[in-house]
Design a protein around this nucleic acid. Structure first.
Lengths: 230, 230
DNA sequence: AGGCCTGCTGTCAGTTTCTGGCAGTAGGAT
DNA sequence: ATCCTACTGCCAGAAACTGACAGCAGGCCT
């Protein structure tokens, strides 16, 4: 096994631990000495991995992923950059920050001529008109989907009447003018789509959705016969 | 100098040559032996670099860039993926392919659990309603901008009258409903914005724009007092 | 304070990988 | 055929890596 492969394996292994893990455990899992493990940790940290460690405590990896060397064409970079610009211009603040950070990281490793191209890129995204989402906290929705928690929402239907719903959210649809939450609705006992601007109130419960997001998504797709891009 | 650094330097060096360059020249530029140069070429090819070489001919690198190891958070990956989905759903075919290829490359290096997350991502982009661009070839526009060639267009104004314009394109704006080309117009001797769906005809000339894209963009921004995201 | 559990760094002998030089093969263009 | 070039295997020497060891240090608990 090459060292490069082993570094990748170490970072993936670290990702599986939710609690601090000792260097000894990691070394045994990888079949290397503790001294080499210390060296590998130092190398990964030098490559930007946010790994915390303290005596008597163990190692914790801040969530992330190490992208190995990858060859991208200039158009692929352009597509990623344009897409990140769109995310930065037209989604919630959390995703906006993530997109900006990703762009900054990419820019930091580009050679000077490509970086200049990036900074003076000819593909611009309009941010003057924002989609209508009301007061809905989209980041909280994304987090609830990711964690698998039910939401309690007050929802105004097309006639303005408000109902309380307990829903199992599993996907967020990005349309030009709005954002649509796809969820299983306990009140209606069926899949429903909720426009963000009509969500009058929302509480993230600590009740777990009984199915995985993937199961809900697959069933919803089967029922709606929709393609993978919605 | 570590080997990793040298591989990066080699690929950047290759990018500066527009014609085939001999292995000997590359080796001398990098201060390594020809034998090591061959090994490095083989390693880069194994990493996905599209480097063509033939006896008596030299090396040519198909345009691209080698991203070095990079640590990305899960949200940064999510932002890039969502953005790439948007590009794939709502831009021209060429960018669409580029976005898809980039996604495929990212997916190929993700560990199984993250790849599954990517494939069942909860953030979906609608592609049911396309922006109105008429018959305009956006990829050709992007290429003309990149290469710095003037365009001859037939343009219908807001009253339906058509005029012929010779323009210096420098940016393409992505709005929800349309695409807007920002260019210097020789007829009006000023900056103008052209909506894609009103471009009745377009010919890419072989006449070079006398200013760089960056100069035009900077001046346009100064005149319009617009921010970097349009 | 001491003990336990842990992370960290330097050193050095042994191991592994890399490099350069050389020899030989091969291809494209003239 | 000649010239210019890419390619691969081999091998001695150089460079990098590994594991074992020693010593230092910190957090927590008794």
């Amino acid at each position: 096994m090459s060292r490069t492969t082993r570094l990748l394996d170490l970072i993936q292994l670290l990702r599986t631990y939710r609690r601090p893990v000792s260097g000894n455990t990691l070394a045994q899992r990888l079949g290397i000495s503790i001294r080499t493990l210390y060296r590998d940790i130092a190398t990964l940290q030098a490559q930007g991995a946010d790994i915390q460690g303290a005596p008597g405590f163990g190692y914790v990896l801040k969530p992330g992923f190490l992208m190995p060397p990858m060859m991208l064409s200039e158009e692929e970079i352009e597509a990623l950059v344009l897409g990140a610009r769109w995310v930065a211009a037209r989604t919630d603040d959390e995703l906006k920050d993530a997109a900006r950070n990703a762009l900054a990281k990419i820019a930091a490793v580009l050679p000077a001529d490509l970086r200049r191209e990036l900074e003076t890129n000819s593909l611009l995204v309009s941010s003057t008109k924002r989609p209508i989402v009301g007061a809905t906290d989209l980041a909280a929705i994304r987090e609830a989907i990711r964690q698998g928690f039910k939401l309690d929402i007050g929802y105004a239907d097309i006639n303005g009447r408000s109902t309380n719903r307990r829903i199992w959210p599993f996907a967020l649809g990005y349309f030009e003018e709005t954002r649509v939450l796809a969820a299983w609705c306990e009140l209606r006992e069926d899949f429903r789509h909720f426009r963000a601007e009509r969500i009058a109130s929302m509480i993230v419960t600590d009740i777990r959705v009984p199915q995985t997001r993937q199961q809900l998504l697959a069933e919803w797709r089967r029922v709606h016969n929709v393609k993978s891009d919605m």
